[in-house]
Write a protein that binds this DNA or RNA. Structure first.
Lengths: 155, 155
DNA sequence: ATACATGCAAACAATTTGCATATTA
DNA sequence: TAATATGCAAATTGTTTGCATGTAT
């Protein structure tokens, strides 16, 4: 799913076009990763200084109902990204920027016989860490400190 | 970790013995699965009608700090169970009763080379569903309805 | 007696809702 | 204009905190 498809879907379903709605979808299109309600509020602050969380939440939950977005919960916060209906997969999730990278391996494939008495209804497999870009940024933030350490290499 | 060990640990660390603390640990010992703060409050209602959530939360978070309990987040609620430090593993989690069953398979073992640029710091793999006991209970709840359906098998 | 534990009330953060108003089709 | 979207304010839920009091050591 992407912004274009989402806009068409909304129109077909009779939902109205609004700038905020479009811009929220734009954010997801540009970002290509998970965003929280707060992320959206911050990102739209310039264009819509007074945008209310109600609107954001209402739209997120509408988008979720329409399968435009999919949700996960990260550290107590709901995060959304475009729904990928093409095939079942999981994600690497960057804890700093929220960007995700698809991994096609699903651990369930190897687990057909874990426990025949347990009726499986769902599963969650997520890998957390830091993406290449964020690793660089983290390194740069550390630099000044690291230098002073590197100067005195041993005791 | 179990109640006995936890009590010893608490004493050694200088924390005081209280009935509530012990009974909370008893709950985890008896249950052997995830419990939420609310679960605990309900379970202790008879013995401590006025038990406050503060106390429950404070103890849960103390227990977590001391590695007595481990936490997961299920549907926006924090859930706790005894911490298993013996070996890395994952869980089948019953969505009805919270009981867990260990599975020793870890999908990370097969994923050494997913993305060399992504620095992995953690992962989550949980399988959700219904345990044997809860499946039975769910069946029984459905029974009356099922009977009336079974009487007229076809059109 | 002293330190730690608890209850109370209040604060918090994330999210949701009712209702009046504003906006799109 | 008719239906949908938004803002406002207030409610809800899960959780945390300050402070006075209570209790285990």
């Amino acid at each position: 799913m992407n912004k274009q498809e989402a806009m068409v879907l909304l129109k077909n379903k009779g939902y109205k076009h609004t700038d905020k709605r479009e811009d929220i979808l734009n954010l997801f299109d540009r970002k290509g990763g998970y965003l929280s309600a707060k992320d959206i509020q911050i990102a739209l602050k310039d264009d819509y200084p007074g945008i209310s969380f109600d609107t954001i939440y209402r739209n997120l939950s509408l988008f979720q109902d329409l399968m435009i977005l999919e949700e996960t919960e990260l550290d107590g916060e709901k995060m959304y990204q475009f729904h990928c209906k093409e095939h079942h997969h999981h994600h690497l999730i960057c804890l700093r920027c929220g960007k995700t990278r698809t991994i096609d391996v699903c651990p369930m494939q190897d687990l057909s016989q874990v426990d025949p008495d347990f009726q499986v209804t769902g599963h969650k497999f997520e890998i957390y860490g830091y993406c290449k870009e964020c690793r660089k940024k983290i390194e740069n933030e550390k630099k000044p400190l690291q230098d002073s350490i590197t100067v005195s290499p041993s005791t």
